[in-house]
């Protein structure tokens, strides 16, 4: 039996909206540690890893670990019916083939419930090793989204290079070339405007812009995004889900043929 009551139900909508275009269906694994999701896009170039910890929930009961396979488009349809401030409660039986979502308005004057059909999904789980990253950049999520959008209008791939001077995003295409450099800024008046660069050694990697742009759909989740890079390894793009968990995206770099 699963029962999970999330006061900030709007958070769930933001998570699903952030990933539904990248991954069409996924298993949501539920255990005593909370909700976890790991899924790759159809081309197996990028991966989503999400964890919503059980202590994020006002009430959390999970008698037996279970895997709930869902169409994320259908899940998004259901969650669209929830108000942004609604309290969301998920309920499922151990051997059931449905999950029920209950939405309560903050004033408790409206209650609705939706039953979503579950499906069997074969998914491959990747073991992601703990990595000591050469460069970790924490920047405003809106700035990251803007850079991805601006550079996408010029080119298809971006070189992200982190040096002691800052982090440079470079692209080129038929129009010409574009460079955006983000420098460390820890003295901004507002904390949400700060950029922190932790550099152990310089690193430069090339990525397909369309995936990085897709990750920016998570912008409403957090004021900041963290890019973690190491030579010849996938970049990790992380959005914190407040103090309740995280949404991470991994993207394989392009390499010289």
């Amino acid at each position: 039996m699963l029962e999970a009551r999330l006061v900030q139900g709007g958070m769930l909508k933001k998570v699903v909206d952030a990933v539904k275009d990248l991954v069409t269906e996924a298993n949501i694994d539920v255990s005593s540690s909370g909700f976890q999701l790991q899924a790759m896009d159809t081309s197996h170039v990028s991966l989503i890893a999400m964890h919503l910890r059980s202590d994020a929930f006002e009430h959390f009961r999970c008698d037996r670990a279970m895997s709930m396979g869902m169409s994320l488009a259908n899940l998004a349809k259901v969650l669209k019916c929830a108000g942004n401030d609604d309290i969301v409660t998920l309920k499922a039986n151990d051997d059931g083939d449905t999950v029920t979502f209950m939405f309560e308005s903050p004033k408790e004057d409206r209650v609705s419930d939706f039953e979503l059909k579950l499906m069997d999904i074969d998914s491959e789980h990747l073991g992601i090793p703990d990595t000591d990253y050469c460069a970790t950049v924490t920047m405003p999520s809106g700035e990251y989204a803007r850079i991805c959008k601006d550079l996408s209008s010029i080119g298809d791939t971006v070189v992200i290079s982190a040096t002691k001077d800052g982090v440079k995003f470079t692209t080129s295409g038929d129009v010409g070339t574009a460079n955006v450099t983000v420098r460390q800024n820890t003295t901004a008046d507002k904390k949400e405007d700060q950029t922190i660069i932790d550099l152990k050694e310089p690193v430069a990697l090339t990525f397909a812009l369309r995936y990085l742009t897709s990750f920016a759909k998570a912008t409403p989740l957090a004021t900041h995004v963290t890019l973690s890079m190491t030579r010849e390894l996938p970049v990790m793009v992380e959005y914190a889900i407040q103090d309740m968990g995280f949404l991470r995206f991994y993207l394989a770099p392009k390499i010289e043929d």
């Binding site: 170039v45 996938p234 392009k254």
Partner: peptide
């Protein structure tokens, strides 16, 4: 020329 490897080429299948 650049090629786009999959994630499996970096991470192992668990």
């Amino acid at each position: 020329d650049e090629k786009q490897p999959t994630l499996k080429e970096f991470f192992q299948i668990r």
